[in-house]
């Protein structure tokens, strides 16, 4: 069962910066369990379907002789056949139910998490808070890094409507419901970039609410986390420094935080290390200076209805601001 016993002709699953997002391309502990379950159930159901179709085809095409079918004896024989088929249905259904329960139990096996991440889903982006009392906690947006082979506990909350946290390659989905907290455990078995996406309809930009899970070896994860704990980079570059001034003057700071500066807003994503992220606007665009500028200049055309207001800026200010954003590695 380990090798993907796929019945369906699948196109290439991995592609470029998209990262993988497929239940069949399992790269995590839960993901693999679920993939095996899916494949097994699909095979069983396929066999059942073929069986029923053979019966159907036979009953439609069989040669009929004389008055067969009307006699009492044949009616009884049919009764036996139908009862047998129903009994088989009961057995198969029972078997699948037990199989499903077993998988649930394997998924639930509790272990102490090595790392806890709090997820706050908002219309239409993901806030990730790494809670670590000893080393200090920090925030990212739309991108998490996790160490390979470790249990990562994800605490799921929503600040507005219902969303759903789903990284198909690593495991099943779980909703984020306002007023409640749900838990999910992730464990990536191999390094890689795994794409996740909101799976519960959450309004206008539900389609553009993706995030990436970057599983990496413990050492590089530690480095990454250490960098993230640093306050926002100070840059000597003139353009970026001017951008910082624009950031403060134009009220960007009312919504965004850049640690180590006066910007402490909490409505929008934490931008302390925005330059280090792979994408911006919840997976909408690759993170380049050009796309940053485009986003700041006109967020409502790129992602209509999103919650970033358009701030009027001159061309120079825009250039400076995007340079500053890019410098926040």
């Amino acid at each position: 069962m380990r090798a993907p016993l796929i019945l369906l002709p699948l196109p290439v699953l991995l592609s470029g910066c998209g990262g993988s997002q497929s239940a069949l391309d399992a790269q995590g502990y839960s993901g693999a369990l679920l993939r095996d379950l899916i494949v097994l159930i699909v095979v069983v159901c396929l066999v059942v379907w073929i069986g029923v179709m053979i019966m159907l085809a036979w009953s439609l095409t069989r040669r009929r002789d004389g008055q067969a079918g009307d006699s009492r004896g044949s009616e009884q024989r049919l009764g036996v056949w139908v009862s047998g088929a129903v009994a088989a249905t009961v057995l198969i259904i029972g078997g699948l139910t037990i199989l499903s329960f077993q998988t649930t139990r394997s998924l639930d096996r509790a272990g102490d998490p090595d790392l806890t991440i709090r997820v706050r889903a908002q219309q239409w982006w993901w806030q990730f808070v790494y809670e670590d009392a000893d080393a200090g906690s920090f925030q990212t947006a739309n991108e998490i890094h996790i160490p390979v082979g470790k249990e990562v506990r994800v605490r799921l909350e929503s600040t507005d409507v219902i969303h759903s946290f789903w990284v198909p390659s690593l495991g099943g989905k779980q909703d984020l419901v306002p007023g409640r907290e749900n838990l999910l455990t992730l464990r990536a078995e191999r390094p890689g970039v795994y794409r996740g996406q909101c799976a519960e309809f959450c309004g206008l930009q539900h389609s553009h609410m993706a995030f990436f899970v970057i599983a990496e070896e413990e050492e590089s994860y530690r480095q990454w986390a250490a960098t993230q704990r640093q306050p926002g980079a100070q840059t000597g570059e003139a353009e970026a420094s001017a951008g910082k001034a624009v950031f403060m003057a134009r009220r960007c700071a009312a919504c965004h935080t850049i640690r180590g500066t006066g910007a402490t807003g909490t409505t929008g994503p934490d931008l302390t290390h925005v330059g280090s992220r792979r994408t911006i606007a919840a997976g909408l665009m690759d993170n380049t200076r050009g796309s940053l500028a485009a986003w700041i200049a006109d967020p409502q055309t790129l992602k209509p209805g999103n919650n970033m207001p358009l701030v009027p800026l001159t061309g120079d200010e825009l250039r400076q601001l995007s340079a500053y954003m890019e410098s926040l590695k």
């Binding site: 239940a23 679920l34 379950l37 899916i38 159930i41 699948l96 499903s100 649930t104 099943g172 989905k173």
Partner: peptide, 9 residues
Amino acid sequence: SVPFDAQVH
């Protein structure tokens, strides 16, 4: 099946 549904829901 709950686990199956977790992937396809």
